[in-house]
Structure formats: C-alpha cells, structure tokens
Computed example of a mutant assay.
Amino acid sequence: MTSNLVLINSKVSHLSPVPLSTDWERVLADWLNTKRSPHTRRVYQKDIENFLADLGTELGKFLSLDRHGAYALVSRYKGELVTKGLKSATINRRLAAIKSLVAFSYNCGHSDFMLESVKGEKLSAYRDTSGVDPETFKRVLGGIDRGTLKGIRDYALLLLLWSNALRRSEVSKASIADFDPVAKTLRIFGKGRGNNSEIVSLGTGTVTAIEAWLEARGEHDPDKALFVSVNPGYKDGRLCTQAIYNIVSDRCKDAGITKVMSPHRIRHSSITAALEATGGDVRRVQKLSRHSSLNTLLIYDDNRKNHQGEVTDLLDSLV
C-alpha cells in the first residue's frame, strides 16, 4: 500500500461509487476523510500502514477475512504491541484506528465483520496531574528576554497557556480575528468540538502580552494566525502543535526545571493552582478547564490534597 494517498477533495462517493472489484485505497481515503482533524487523519493513516506492514498483509486481504480470522489477526497484533512494550495509550489508539476503519468498511458493505470484541488496554485516567507551582512558572516567564521578537511571542504564548489552561491545539488554531482585546476574549476551537467554537475570557496581563506581540510583529490581518514562527524560512507560518511543545519544553529547561514539561503539563499546573487558589471549588475551576465531567476535577483535587499520603503518615505513626 502506498502512503501518498489522496485524502482531500475526493468526489462524493454516491457520484463515483466503489466498483465491484473494490478499490481499497479509495476505501481507505474515504474513511480518512470522515475524520475532521488533519492530525487524526495523519496519525490514523500511519497506524493502518504500520498494522498492515507489521503483519505482512494488504488492506483488501484483511477486510476480506471472516470474523474469526480478523479477530485472531488483530488480537495477535495487539499482543505483539504489548510485547514490544508500547504504552497502553498508543496501543489503544492503534486499535481504535483499526476498529474505526473496519466499522466504516462494514457499513459500506466492503467487509463482513466488526471488532467490538477486541478490547483495549485499561488506562488510569489522570493518574499524574502534577506540574509546577505558580512561583516556578513565574521563574519561567521571568527568564524570557522580552527585548526580542521571539521573547515577546513566547511570553504571550506561555502566559496564555497558563492563565487559561488551554490545550496546544487550541492555541495553534487561533487566528488574529479570534482575539478581542476590548472584550478581553479569545475564540477557541476546543477538543472534540469540530467546527463549534467557544469564547473564553482572558486576564488583563494576557491581553497586554498578546497586544505587545501583535504590535512587535506588525501584523493585524484578521485571517493570519495568532502565533507564528519568527525563524527565517518559516517566518509568519502558523505555529503547529509540535512547535508549541518545543517552545514550552525549551523555556522550562532554560528556567532550570528538570521535570519534563509540555503544554499539557502547564495545563495540569494551571488547573491544580486554580483549585488551590479557590479552596478546591471544583465547579468554578471546571469553567476554566472545560472538562465535561466534574469527576475529572475531583481527581485533580484528590491528587492536590494527597489524601493517600496523609493516611500513610497516619498508619506509619501507629507502629
């Protein structure tokens, strides 16, 4: 199977149906086009390619199996991933890609099986919500030279991540038109919300920092990205999620933080700091984090309080 599939701008399937001798690359492309996120399309395509390459088979042969053969093949593949020591989250993502493709093929009449009985690895959600405290993050911000264009940008970027507990994808997608300095708001496109946007309020310091970045950059076209590269050759290109990750990682290392830091670790830090500042008011902090379930905030709060450590100290003192 080739990796240079045409995934975009394909004709609507009912105008150009898959022939009886199935064009399996077309089936794969049509399935990938049902995924709204370009990142998801890229990752899922790679996952399917790895699956077929690792087992030495082709897409058509796989989807033409009966349900018993398909279950055996995918279960064996899962076992090989476990043996290789891949993380549970990675294994589950690869299985999710395979199961999604199979479900699509089944509903289109290209295969005769589903894979509901193939189970993923059990995960402990939000086991580690640790990050850094506000004083440590102040040190990160204080170490940025705001006399340079890169420094002005990085300061605004990190302050936005901290003050609003945003995900890096939400920052990457933001354009200048989404920023309203008068209303002190930013329109974001959150995780799992497709084209549906939401408005978040910004702190005064964050608004000032973003305005300083736009002024230093000299760009006010509303269609341009809010945060862009300042490197020669990539200047004015929208910052991708990996670039945002690298900025966070590098700035935290420069501040002497030995813990591996990422945009999501800053998000953890912000949520934990918000719970500390509000005395554990999970309902208020839920508005900041935008978690759909209040139970997720309770996990953060429990980790913050370290009830397990308190009980361990109590038992330790009894003997």
Results as ranks from 00 to 15, higher is better:
141 L>W: 15
114 M>C: 07
140 V>F: 15
155 Y>C: 02
139 R>T: 14
155 Y>M: 03
100 S>W: 03
127 R>Y: 11
136 T>S: 13
154 D>C: 10
104 F>M: 06
111 S>I: 01
136 T>W: 13
136 T>L: 15
108 C>H: 08
109 G>D: 02
105 S>D: 00
144 I>E: 13
111 S>V: 01
112 D>A: 13
105 S>A: 11
94 R>E: 08
124 S>L: 07
147 G>C: 11
122 K>S: 13
146 R>V: 06
118 V>D: 01
148 T>H: 13
134 P>V: 09
106 Y>I: 07
123 L>H: 13
147 G>I: 09
113 F>C: 10
103 A>Y: 03
91 I>K: 02
143 G>V: 10
149 L>H: 04
153 R>I: 03
145 D>M: 15
108 C>F: 02
154 D>Y: 06
120 G>F: 07
92 N>Q: 02
114 M>W: 03
136 T>K: 15
87 K>Q: 06
97 A>F: 00
128 D>G: 01
123 L>P: 09
126 Y>E: 02
109 G>I: 02
127 R>C: 07
121 E>R: 08
148 T>A: 06
143 G>A: 04
122 K>T: 12
142 G>D: 14
124 S>K: 07
110 H>R: 12
137 F>R: 14
92 N>Y: 00
116 E>N: 10
143 G>I: 09
119 K>D: 05
106 Y>D: 05
147 G>N: 13
112 D>N: 11
143 G>E: 09
136 T>I: 15
87 K>F: 05
133 D>L: 06
129 T>A: 00
91 I>A: 01
